[in-house]
Amino acid sequence: MRRPGNRLTTLVLGAAVLCGAALAGPALAKDTVVIYTAIESEQITEYKKAYEKALPNLEVKMLRFSTGDISARFMAEKDNMQADVIWGVAATNTLIFKNAGLLEAYAPKGLERVQPLFRDKANPPSWVGIDIYMSAFCVNTEVAKKKNLPTPASWGDLTKPVYKGHLVMPNPHSSGTGYLSVASILQRMGETEGWKYLDALHQNMAEYTKSGSKPCKDAAAGERAIGVSFEYVALEMKKKGSPIEMVLPKEGSGYDMEANALTKKGAKNPAAKAFLDWAISNEAMALYAKYFAAVGVAGFPVPEGLPKDISKVVYPNDFDWSAKNRDRILAEWQKRYAK
């Protein structure tokens, strides 16, 4: 069987394209670069001002979704690639892109300044990390007091029956934060114990959200008592006036890295490379460092409220394992907890 009606379709393409061209193509005077990103939108706002100033001749078309969603979209478009640049998407996922052959190795200018941990081992690297983010609990103290909930200190605490219905965490399918938490638990406890733990956690879970920051924002709004999220949102919500306390679990937080990469499509686009060069510049790193404890280039001050040395609070992540097993873990997760 063939696809229905191909010949007829080809016949009318002319009209359709005319129509499309008329609407779609306001003259492309600037160099256009299409960027897929999972960076928090508030941060993008900040970064945007900077890159617009630094790269005035660049017309940036950006698509932002949660890590899992943007990755799924990028993967789905692999035969018809739209993105030139991957910017700030979890290293785990970037690794998957690399393994799928969707990336073009590229050494952005100034690569030598980036700490070894933050870059793909190949040379030139397929991806370069820019910052580290880690799982953190957001506890709404007001709600907790009203509901008589003790402040949890560890992953283990979260499975206590007292929290039933008060927890919310991101769906690892769509959210990078969600996946790094699940992956870290499985790496730390081993798969058998890990899944047992997740089963218990599921009993207490009110909802799995699409985005990684939403659990914390829900907690901040008082909608939920405790959100499993990541450290930046926790601080941000507290700053904005919500009664939020950030908890880094004592077993160690899971972590991942936001990474940049050049796509196969972007390989032919000089503007894409220009953007990637800027994205690890000192200017960019200084901006990342306003939100994250550890960024690609060492020596930037750590934001208020975050641990000075994150290696003390995170549980080490085996990126290769996380990337290789992602599909399998997600399938298992889906089977167990999707409704």
Binding site: T9, T10, L13, G14, A16, V17, C19, G20, A21, A22, L23, A24, E77, D79, N80, Q82
Partner: peptide, 19 residues
């Protein structure tokens, strides 16, 4: 419309396809 190599693909990602 998201078909690589097809002329229809020109419409993908435009405002026209939303219209």
């Amino acid at each position: 419309f998201n078909v690589p190599g097809s002329l229809l693909n020109r419409l993908y990602g435009t405002l026209a396809i939303l219209v």
